[in-house]
Amino acid sequence: MILFDPDLDPDPTSHVRLPARPGGSAQTTTPRKQRIPNARTLARFLREAQSAVKLRGQVSVLLTTDTAIRRLNRQFRGKNKATDVLSFPTDVPGPEKIAGDLAISVNTARRQSEERGHSLATEIKVLALHGLLHLAGYDHESDSGQMARREQKLRALLRLPHGLIERSNQSGTAKLPRGSGR
C-alpha cells in the first residue's frame, strides 16, 4: 500500500516556467523527471521488488517530508536528523502476514535524484528496494557485505542504478567487503 503524507507538496518550489501560450499567462510546472510517481506505478514496482527480495506479507510505504522522517528517525532510532528511508519490520500474528512499513522522504529523494542525474521515481524505487531488504532481515551496518551483494543483484534485475550502499562506498565513507562484485 502506498500512502502520501498530506504535508507533502506534490509540486515543489523547483518549478520550471514555461513560455506563455498565445493570449495567456506563463505556466509553472514541475519538470517531469522530478514529479512524484503515482501510487499505481509505485505499487506495481513494490510488488515486483518484493517478489525479487522474496519478502512475503503486506508492506506499506509512506512518502513523506524531511520534517516527518526526521521526527520518526529521532523517535525510533534516536537520531535527530532527516534520512532518506526508514524500515519498520514487524511480526504481527494474524491471518494476513504484515512484513512491515517503509517511510521515504521525498525531499531527500529529490535531492539525491538530482545529484545522480536520474528521475525522482527511480530514486524512490532505489530507496524502496533498500528498505525491503531491511524488512527481509538484511543489515548492512552489521553484516559482512551480504546486503550489499544482494542489493547489487536485485538492482540489476530491476533495472535500477547504484544503490545506497554502493553510493556510500563510492564517497569513501564505507568499504565493500572482498567478493562483493565491485
Rank of each mutant, 00 (worst) to 15 (best):
S51I: 03
R155C: 02
A128N: 01
E123W: 01
R159Y: 00
V106E: 07
R70D: 02
D66A: 15
D9C: 07
Q27S: 14
T90M: 13
T122L: 01
K153G: 13
Q152T: 14
I98R: 09
V85M: 06
K97T: 11
K33L: 13
A43Y: 02
G131Y: 04
R149N: 05
I69D: 03
L127S: 12
A82G: 15
G117N: 09
L154P: 04
A39M: 10
A52V: 00
L8I: 11
R149K: 15
P89R: 06
G23K: 09
R35T: 12
R111L: 10
G137S: 07
L157M: 11
G137P: 06
R44V: 10
T30Q: 08
D7K: 12
P37K: 03
A39D: 14
A52P: 02
S113R: 06
G181D: 10
S25G: 11
G131Q: 02
A99K: 00
I2K: 07
L62F: 07
P19L: 12
G57M: 01
G145S: 07
G100D: 02
S119C: 05
A68Y: 11
R116P: 02
A109V: 03
V53L: 04
D11W: 09
R110A: 12
T67S: 12
S87E: 03
R70Q: 15
T122Y: 01
R21D: 12
P161R: 05
I2S: 09
R17D: 05
